[in-house]
Design a binder for these strands. Sequence first.
DNA 1: TTAGCATAAATTGGCGCCAATTTTGGATCA
DNA 2: TGATCCAAAATTGGCGCCAATTTATGCTAA
Lengths: 210, 210
Amino acid sequence: MNKVKQREANNATAVDVTDLILHDIQTGVLAPGSWLKQIDLEQRYQCTRPEVRRALDRLAQRRLVEHVPNRGYHVFEPDGRQAAEVSEIRILLETGMADKIAANASTADVEALRELARRFDKLILEGTPIELYEANLAFHYRLLSLCGNSELVKLVTEIRQRTSSAPVSQWKTRARIEQSSREHHEMVNAIAAGETAALKDAISRHIRQD
Amino acid sequence: MNKVKQREANNATAVDVTDLILHDIQTGVLAPGSWLKQIDLEQRYQCTRPEVRRALDRLAQRRLVEHVPNRGYHVFEPDGRQAAEVSEIRILLETGMADKIAANASTADVEALRELARRFDKLILEGTPIELYEANLAFHYRLLSLCGNSELVKLVTEIRQRTSSAPVSQWKTRARIEQSSREHHEMVNAIAAGETAALKDAISRHIRQD
DNA sequence: TTAGCATAAATTGGCGCCAATTTTGGATCA
DNA sequence: TGATCCAAAATTGGCGCCAATTTATGCTAA
């Protein structure tokens, strides 16, 4: 019983510091290029020094922060070339799965996607940039999951984090967001119609201007 | 001067424990499924406890070892499905770059690749399985580097480690190795001739039976 | 006034101890 | 004889201290 209590307490606090820092990097709270001082993080997230260090090491492994020995860790700023390369990788992976996505999608899946796309639309007006960002993520996650390759889904999820470090807070222009919205529906329609070429094209454009 | 001495000493020992463990996993010294006790590793690699733990955490992040809380870490055994999924990802990435590889390859590059392929051939007879494995890696690394997308090269290098955990020591049959050899030359020839379709086909087959 | 330097403050990062948990081995009882 | 339970050994994992390095500050000298 005491044990159970502990488990529950642990599970409640089971949100790893790594995820918290990651989230703050992605929502732009921790700006690209800024130094992540261990003391600050320790206080901000109410955790111990070793926890902070483990989190920073993990994020450095994923290339979300950069480690300079004896200087510390700072939020990674991908240069233009790297960003372009990552986009290219994503295009390769996601368009490569277009056929399977279209093949595997049931009518229920299509409807679920349409719903997620609508949710994105709704949040353009009513939601915060962060909510919008998360709705976008949810849509793409659901979409890609249809390919049936769970390792690939994990991989893309991981990779996607590398490009979208900064942009969330000051997320591009209204025009672009609405363009994104249109492309979402374009993708859903392409899947519903089984037009894989159109799907590939939409995905490709979508990633490029992400 | 004292400083310089230290630097040198550090650089000499700059081979991270993570890489040592990784190497031993890939060469099959540390068998898939086996438990990695911190005390053993500490002694084996002559390093401290925190170093071991950092290394294990990193390898767990890369999904090369699996972590069971309060039980420890054990070498990851990919099941059939996961292995197939990873292969599919590699095929997507590497064949997707075939055009660029063929386009970017100078005659010098082609010659270098041919040399690496020959080196592989030579080691079939004269070398150890590990040398063979490394020659194979070198060939593929050089090949993929021609695509010009360094992020992708890093990614594939990382991904490749996930499949070839066990097989190195008892590496498939002689017939398969010789088949690999032929495919290497096939790829080189396809690049030299600019036949991207043939290149894609060869890469695809090669990965599938890797 | 500015450049250079030395000292002090702040920060990083290595290391070992100890508590918590799990596993093993053995003893007791049905 | 076998199963259950308890205790001891082994292992994991959290935490804090201190040394090493870097950065900031203020002082001195040209």
